[in-house]
């Protein structure tokens, strides 16, 4: 009868799809344990998201609203979530492995004296125990772990769970009182947020991703990646080398230490396919590689490859797609 608390991911006024994937995870766990799941959101003002949150099949929607907590600082969020966990006797706390989830949940696990599994890709149940599968070694090893504490904390890899589809029924909504923050709040000050501007789909949600690497040679040249992405409704991604060189904002790095993507179509342009990059694209349905070096490792994981100069092949590809659609 163990109950689950899902921490929703709200950004820029929207309940992110990663929340829906985490709900799918929670509903599977609830089916195993015979318990139920509730969803909790934290922010300055959640009135715009309450409707969406209340159609996720949750036992309850728990809202923690207070000025200045939008940014998801662990020092602010942990005492608030901890209070909800203790009052509601939640045994499993799950969040998307977004940057907020990664930042806050380990600190939460610590304060709950709970063990934690990061970036969970699968879950099973046997003899009253939950077993979590999670990737290690840049996705080259899967590890099955068991959390041995009474409370269990997990972050969920969005791309491995289909997003939960909203249902007609409405969950009851509860607004909670905010407890005093962690003392560490006095030693941290939030100065600002610089948004990476993009009208394109979020990388982890995208059905098509076009990524560029060092082979693009400049930020200016990266425009052909954007042009191709826009033509086919894709998101834009990049390698660490491309981000380090300043071609594009760090928010677009794909890989072991960047975003994990799983589109239907991934087009890799002028990137070598280092294992740290491949770690982030392995679950893509179809991978296309365009690289002038036929020995590039990316061809070992791609379904279709073109050995060519990208500055010739990409404009040709754009023309060909325009011609045939």
């Amino acid at each position: 009868m163990d109950n689950i608390l899902v921490i929703a991911q709200v950004f820029d006024g929207q309940v992110k799809k990663s929340t829906n994937a985490t709900i799918t995870f929670a509903s599977r766990v609830a089916a195993f344990t015979g318990g139920s799941y509730s969803v909790m959101a934290l922010g300055d003002d959640l009135s715009g998201q309450t409707e969406d949150l209340s159609h996720l099949g949750a036992q309850k929607v728990i809202l923690a609203e207070a000025p200045g907590i939008d940014q998801g600082l662990g020092e602010q969020w942990v005492p608030i979530i901890e209070q909800v966990v203790r009052k509601g006797s939640f045994k499993i706390i799950a969040s998307p492995s977004s940057s907020i989830g990664k930042d806050v949940l380990p600190r939460l696990a610590q304060s709950l004296k709970a063990g934690m599994a990061s970036d969970v890709t699968d879950v099973s149940y046997e003899s009253d125990n939950l077993f979590y599968v999670r990737p290690m070694y840049a996705g080259n090893v899967n590890c099955t772990v068991q959390i041995t504490t009474e409370t269990e904390v997990v972050t969920v890899r969005q791309t491995e769970f289909d997003p939960f589809e909203a249902i007609a029924e409405e969950s009851p909504v509860e607004r909670i009182d905010i407890p005093p923050p962690d003392m560490a709040v006095e030693r941290i000050e939030f100065n600002g947020f610089e948004k990476s501007i993009s009208e394109r789909p979020d990388l982890p949600d995208a059905k098509i991703v076009v990524s560029g690497g060092r082979g693009l040679k400049s930020g200016e040249n990266f425009k052909i990646i954007e042009e191709l992405a826009d033509l086919i409704g894709g998101a834009v991604g990049a390698t660490r080398a491309a981000v380090d060189a300043g071609f594009i904002h760090n928010d677009f790095q794909v890989g072991q230490t960047g975003k994990i993507v799983a589109p239907d179509l991934y087009i890799a342009v002028g990137l070598s396919g280092a294992l740290q990059h491949v770690a982030g694209i392995k679950s893509s349905k179809v991978i296309v590689a365009i690289n002038k070096d036929e020995e590039a490792p990316i061809f070992q994981v791609s379904d279709y490859g073109i050995v060519a100069d990208l500055f010739k092949a990409v404009p040709e590809l754009i023309e060909e797609i325009k011609k045939t659609t």
């Binding site: 590890c143 099955t144 279709y304």
Partner: peptide, 21 residues
């Protein structure tokens, strides 16, 4: 410890496809 490792396994591998002209 709070987390126990039960076992390891190899994720499904991708294999290289075809080169197009």
């Amino acid at each position: 410890q709070r987390v126990k490792t039960i076992s390891y396994s190899r994720p499904a591998a991708r294999s290289g496809g075809i080169i197009l002209e």
